[in-house]
């Protein structure tokens, strides 16, 4: 049988809102890993996506909310074999996105930040877009195709 369902790409979506606390970093990684597991990602693909999620969530906590309180909004959409992850905070925002994304650049060296967060997101995902407005927050949207 060749009905419309078979020819359409499968779509699946989830959203989670959680507190900007460091103990939730592991939860966010695991939630995304579990959600994309039906795509049968390789160990490397899974580790890449988990690392990128970890970097983005850590940025919300340390930079967005400056380790204060706030909510992090995580959405994940799977269309066919492509995973799109959105991670958003309502924190301080980024004045200069280009500079923030430069490897080794950090505004918080006193917190032992390596400045590799965005570089890792870009290295491990196929596409990374950053939208920010000072005083309003930051949104990172990352895409990764699973299975080549």
């Amino acid at each position: 049988m060749n009905n419309r369902e078979d020819t359409m790409e499968k779509q699946n979506e989830m959203q989670i809102v959680f507190d900007a606390r460091s103990e939730n970093e592991g939860f966010a990684r695991m939630a995304v890993a579990a959600f994309i597991s039906p795509l049968n990602p390789t160990i490397d693909e899974l580790a890449d996506v988990k690392t990128a999620v970890s970097e983005a969530v850590t940025n919300c906590i340390i930079h967005g909310y400056r380790q204060g309180s706030g909510k992090i909004f995580l959405e994940c959409t799977v269309i066919g074999s492509t995973v799109t992850i959105g991670i958003t905070d309502e924190g301080v925002g980024i004045i200069n996105i280009k500079q923030a994304m430069e490897p080794m650049f950090t505004t918080r060296p006193e917190l032992e930040r390596s400045g590799m967060g965005f570089a890792f997101m870009e290295a491990f995902m196929d596409d990374v877009q950053v939208y920010s407005s000072p005083g309003k927050g930051t949104r990172v949207v990352m895409k990764r195709r699973i299975g080549g």
Binding site: R29, A47, K50, T51, S54, E55, T58, L111, E112, R113, S114, G115, M116, G117, A119, F120
Partner: peptide
């Protein structure tokens, strides 16, 4: 089994 850029930061520190 897992390490992100924060791990690099703590080692460099």
């Amino acid at each position: 089994e897992f390490m992100d850029s924060s791990g690099i930061g703590v080692i460099l520190g």
